[in-house]
Amino acid sequence: MLDRVSRIVSRVLLWASALSLALMVGILTWQVFSRYVLDSSPAWAEQSALVLMIWMTFLGTASGIAEGFHIRIVEGVNSLAQPWRARAIGLANVLIIIAGILFLVLGAQLVGATWNNAVPTLPLTRGMVYLVIPASGALMALFALQKLLKGEEIAGSAGSA
């Protein structure tokens, strides 16, 4: 049950990220089009695409913990014999939980500090944009906790190039 919920949440996060990406393409293409064809640049285009990118990054970050696509080095852990291997994996999960909690707490502080800083050209404040950071931290910690309890490894991906 819990597994299914977390899988659905992380899928939704990933799709939301993909949708943000699609919107970014649309907005920036529209910006070039309107500059050359309509002879005016929409003022909101630049900032709204940027906000989408920030949301996409942090929303997806949590889903990367659940689905295990973040870049990591597996050779170290793989070279360990049991029970050290299991302990190392557990420790790594604990470290991710700590990071998630820090994201939550520090992100909330950042939101508080920037709540009144307006984002130019948009009816948003920086604090509203950064709400995604504590949210992502909470989910990260939860996903990693689930793996810790199940003794699971955080899977890793091939790379970014």
Partner: peptide, 14 residues
């Protein structure tokens, strides 16, 4: 879109 969202997320997170 999903593949590039994944790659983007890992690059941007780093």
């Amino acid at each position: 879109f999903v593949n590039s969202a994944r790659t983007t997320i890992m690059v941007m997170f780093i």
